[in-house]
Deep mutational scan, measured.
Amino acid sequence: TFELKGKVGKVVKIAEDHYLVESEGDKWIAYSDEKLSLGDRVMVVDVDGLKLKVKRIP
C-alpha cells in the first residue's frame, strides 16, 4: 500500500472545513488541529480513510 504517513506536502487550497494538500504529485483532503495558510509546508501525521491529518513544519 502507498504509505503517506511522514510525507511532506503543501497546502494548495483552503475550504470551509478542510484543506487541500499536494503531496507526491497528488492532491488530498486534509485537516489539522492548527490553522494553516496557503503555501504552508505540512507533514502527514495520520491517515483516516482518504483524509490526511497534517501538521505545519518549518
Rank of each mutant, 00 (worst) to 15 (best):
T1M: 15
T1N: 15
T1L: 14
T1F: 15
F2W: 03
E3R: 01
E3T: 01
E3S: 01
E3Q: 02
L4T: 14
L4K: 14
L4G: 15
L4E: 15
L4H: 05
L4S: 14
L4P: 15
K5Q: 15
G6D: 05
G6H: 01
G6P: 00
G6F: 02
G6Y: 02
K7A: 14
K7P: 01
K7S: 13
V8P: 11
V8S: 04
V8L: 14
V8W: 04
G9Y: 02
G9C: 15
G9D: 00
G9T: 04
K10C: 11
K10S: 08
K10D: 06
K10W: 12
K10N: 07
K10P: 03
V11G: 00
V11Y: 00
V11F: 00
V12R: 07
V12P: 00
K13G: 10
K13Y: 12
I14N: 06
I14V: 10
I14E: 09
A15S: 08
A15I: 10
A15N: 08
A15L: 10
A15K: 09
E16W: 12
E16H: 09
E16V: 08
E16N: 09
D17K: 10
D17Y: 13
D17C: 11
D17E: 09
D17P: 12
D17T: 12
D17A: 12
H18V: 12
H18E: 11
H18A: 10
H18S: 10
H18R: 12
Y19N: 02
L20F: 09
L20Q: 07
L20R: 07
L20S: 08
E22S: 05
E22I: 09
E22F: 13
E22A: 06
E22C: 09
S23L: 15
S23E: 03
E24P: 03
E24C: 10
E24S: 04
E24K: 02
G25W: 04
G25C: 06
G25Q: 05
G25S: 05
G25A: 05
D26Y: 14
D26L: 14
D26P: 03
D26V: 12
K27Y: 08
K27T: 11
K27S: 10
W28I: 05
W28C: 02
W28E: 01
W28S: 02
W28P: 00
W28M: 05
I29W: 13
I29S: 10
I29Q: 08
A30W: 01
A30Q: 00
Y31F: 10
Y31I: 08
S32K: 12
S32E: 00
S32T: 05
S32F: 02
S32H: 02
S32Q: 02
D33H: 12
D33N: 11
D33A: 13
D33K: 13
D33G: 11
E34G: 08
E34M: 07
E34D: 10
E34S: 07
E34Y: 06
K35Q: 08
K35W: 08
K35N: 07
L36C: 08
L36V: 04
L36Q: 02
S37I: 10
S37K: 06
S37R: 09
L38V: 07
G39C: 13
G39K: 07
D40E: 11
D40P: 00
D40M: 13
D40N: 11
D40C: 13
D40V: 13
R41S: 14
R41T: 09
R41Y: 12
R41G: 11
R41W: 06
V42E: 00
V42N: 00
V42K: 00
V42Y: 01
M43I: 14
M43C: 14
M43E: 15
M43R: 02
M43D: 04
M43Y: 06
M43V: 14
M43W: 07
M43Q: 05
M43L: 14
V44D: 01
V45F: 06
V45H: 05
D46Y: 03
D46F: 03
D46K: 02
D46W: 04
D46R: 02
D46V: 03
D46A: 04
V47E: 04
V47C: 09
V47W: 06
D48M: 11
D48L: 13
D48F: 14
G49I: 08
G49P: 06
G49F: 10
G49W: 08
G49M: 11
G49L: 07
K51I: 13
K51T: 14
L52E: 01
L52G: 02
L52H: 01
L52I: 05
K53D: 04
K53I: 04
K53A: 04
K53V: 04
K53E: 06
V54M: 03
V54G: 01
V54P: 00
V54Q: 00
V54H: 01
K55R: 13
K55Y: 06
K55L: 14
R56C: 05
R56H: 05
R56M: 07
R56F: 09
I57Y: 08
I57E: 13
I57H: 10
I57C: 14
I57N: 06
P58A: 10
P58K: 06
P58D: 11
P58N: 08
P58V: 09
